[in-house]
Amino acid sequence: MTLEPGTADIIQLAWARRLGLDDAAFTAARESGERITRADESARAVQFVRLFGSSALVGPQWALDAAVGIPDEDMAQHVTLLTITRNHGGHGLGAAALFFADDLPLLQPSEELTVSHGNPEAVELEGLCPPDDVNEVGLSDLEHRFTIMHREDGRTVPVACGAYTEWEGILAHMGVLVAPGWRRRGLGSLAASIAAHEALASGLTLQWRADVSNKGSLATARSLGFATGGIQTSVLLD
């Protein structure tokens, strides 16, 4: 699906605030064609974000200086940030594709579902999943959780969770986690659809972030109807 006119501006506003920039920073960058930079000497990470053709780099001044002259296409590569931060212990995080939606088709389940809004069910689901998946999704950081439950062997167990948290009162930053034994059954898309429509009903624009190497998450975003909006590349500093 395509975004409505003006949605990109709303998304860039949310990210400008998230990165500590002026509200009009991305608009000015679009007009000038120049990269936005903000020096933050207390930053524990260096972040490069490219949204709808405009880019921003936030980190200590030495990182901004090291990035001068490096094209955005290269800055979007995780290896580039690792290289320029090598002497400052740059490590971890990576490159993530950013997807957005201001409307989505509503997926209908093939059978009646039980959906929990509770935290214990989401925590139990995390215990069923590999740590790498748990860390990437970060359900514990997502305030609104919608966990699909399934009854088996006389007890009800969590099988998938779609969740979101508000960014700057504008974006619904989403995440989806599915128990390993229940994957490839459409439950991730269904859980995401439930959370997405709750967020849309609250007047939020949807954001989906997926590691560029996570083919499953990338495919889910596209199948749901999210539109590609940019990339976020980050490294942690010692």
Rank of each mutant, 00 (worst) to 15 (best):
L81Y: 07
L106K: 14
D153Q: 15
E111T: 14
P105L: 10
A163R: 04
L171K: 05
E166V: 10
W62V: 05
D72I: 05
H117K: 13
V123W: 08
R184W: 05
N119E: 14
H78K: 03
G89C: 12
E166K: 13
L106S: 11
G154C: 06
R185K: 14
L57Y: 11
T80S: 11
T85W: 02
G92N: 09
D74Y: 03
A163S: 10
F100N: 09
L93G: 00
L106Q: 14
E168W: 00
V176L: 03
E121P: 05
L107V: 12
H197K: 02
P180K: 06
W182A: 02
L82I: 02
S193Y: 04
F146V: 09
E121M: 06
A195V: 12
L104E: 07
P180V: 05
G154R: 07
R183V: 08
V176P: 04
L113E: 11
I194F: 04
L142N: 03
I70C: 05
P131K: 13
G118D: 14
P109W: 03
T165S: 12
A96W: 05
N119M: 07
V176M: 04
P60H: 11
N135C: 02
Q61I: 11
A163Y: 03
L64R: 04
C129D: 12
P105M: 09
H173L: 02
G138F: 03
H197F: 08
L81W: 09
V58S: 06
G162H: 10
A122I: 01
A195H: 11
H144I: 00
A199S: 08
S55R: 08
R145Y: 07
E136V: 08
M75I: 04
V134W: 09
D103F: 00
E166Q: 11
V68A: 14
H150K: 13
V134P: 08
L81C: 05
D72K: 05
H197T: 09
S116H: 08
V79Y: 00
G127D: 12
H173E: 08
Q61F: 00
E124I: 01
A56G: 07
Q61T: 15
P60A: 12
S193E: 03
G89S: 12
A66E: 13
T80N: 03
P71H: 11
V157I: 15
A101C: 07
G169P: 04
D103P: 00
Y164C: 02
L106A: 14
P120G: 01
R86D: 12
G118N: 13
P120I: 00
A66N: 10
P130D: 13
T80V: 11
A179F: 06
R145C: 06
L128A: 15
I194Q: 07
T165F: 01
A97Q: 12
A76D: 07
D153R: 14
T156V: 13
L104T: 10
W62P: 10
W182P: 00
A191D: 06
L128Q: 15
E112L: 14
T165I: 00
L190C: 11
C129A: 15
V178Y: 02
A56F: 02
